[in-house]
Nucleic acid binder design. Structure first.
Lengths: 195, 195
DNA sequence: ACAGCCATGTAACTCGTTACATGATTAC
DNA sequence: GTAATCATGTAACGAGTTACATGGCTGT
């Protein structure tokens, strides 16, 4: 019944439903690999803060062990945590995604920018999309084999494919915008002179 | 040189580059029509807060007039504001968009949800996409005529088309995920029995 | 020996939100 | 006359960030 964690809290609970106990540090790494594409990868300090809250609410069980000279705490989701997560997913309306798209924001005011800057920005974005696609492909491939119908990583796999498609679509949109710019802006001299 | 406003500040400056003087209230409306799709539409209070900061920095000129019994303040971008905006767009690296996609986040942990809940969520999302597409179509159509090559609203038009394509792609992804769920989850009984 | 990763936190701060408050103007 | 819209703010608060601090363990 506790309800109403910040979404990042539920995200962490979600990452803990894949069976293993994780340290805060590992949790952050897992977030960087997956969450980052569809949500935000919280800062380390935020992960620890959130874990303490979840522990306090009994949604997560902290297990402090001495590993040599240092204390290492691993976290696992509890029954109550599972319930809270399910309560959230079931009770919350779909909710439209929030996009913070700096590139689009700047394209929107393109008339106030130097034309070369606009196309430079779009080309940079293409590069970043390449990098993201490469990363996500790796994630996707690492899921291969464990993503058959009944299996554990079927959903992450589904989501990864969604993401790959999304990035591919972004590439198309970027190229189209770039073409549309080139068409009008530079009817004579090309932006990147051939060698 | 002042640099380093919050992005929302630049967004407001951007909205003021389309030629007219606007009140805070009108600015919020314009943000709801456009910004909302690619950024976030800031709360009213935030708009006023940001306008005060921009005025303080001389990036925006406030013009308080008495309109009958009440004070109405309109804002216009200054030369310095134009410079600041251009400085930002030119100097800032492309920067990857941040997506806060609650639907994807929940699909990621689909194994912890009841299957009907997952598909319900996806269907709800489809509805919201329809609504967003309708809204954005309207925006896009309202730009028609003023979006020819040299003209003022060419970039907003470009961006609107990008957005329309993006939402259309989301619809496809959602339908595909839905199909993939139906395929395995309910090999016998269909989710929505045909009348 | 030293760099780099593992691991955990605290403190200060900022953006942005919700809730609240006020009042004038316009439309029906 | 009364509801909706226009217009402008203040106050409390929360999530999340950066910067800082600490220290053990691991590979070379």
């Amino acid at each position: 019944m506790s309800q109403d964690l910040p979404v990042t809290g539920y995200a962490i609970l979600g990452l803990l439903t894949f069976g293993d106990e994780l340290t805060g540090y590992e949790l952050k790494q897992r977030a960087d690999m997956t969450l980052r594409f569809y949500w935000v990868s919280p800062a380390m300090s935020q992960v620890y803060t959130e874990l303490r809250r979840l522990t306090g609410l009994g949604l997560v069980r902290a297990d402090a062990r001495a590993d040599g000279g240092r204390e290492v705490t691993t976290y696992a989701i509890t029954e109550a945590g599972q319930d809270a997560l399910r309560g959230w997913t079931d009770a919350t309306p779909a909710g439209f995604p929030v996009l913070k798209h700096t590139v689009l924001l700047r394209l929107l005011v393109g008339h106030a920018m130097a034309p070369e800057q606009t196309s430079r920005m779009l080309r940079d974005y293409l590069d970043e999309l390449d990098a993201a696609l490469a990363d996500l492909h790796e994630v996707r491939d690492s899921l291969r084999g464990a993503d058959r119908p009944g299996e554990a990583f079927r959903f992450p796999s589904l989501v990864a494919e969604w993401g790959l498609d999304y990035f591919a679509a972004e590439q198309r949109h970027t190229r189209r915008a770039l073409a549309s710019l080139a068409e009008h802006e530079a009817p004579g001299e090309p932006d990147t002179p051939p060698a």
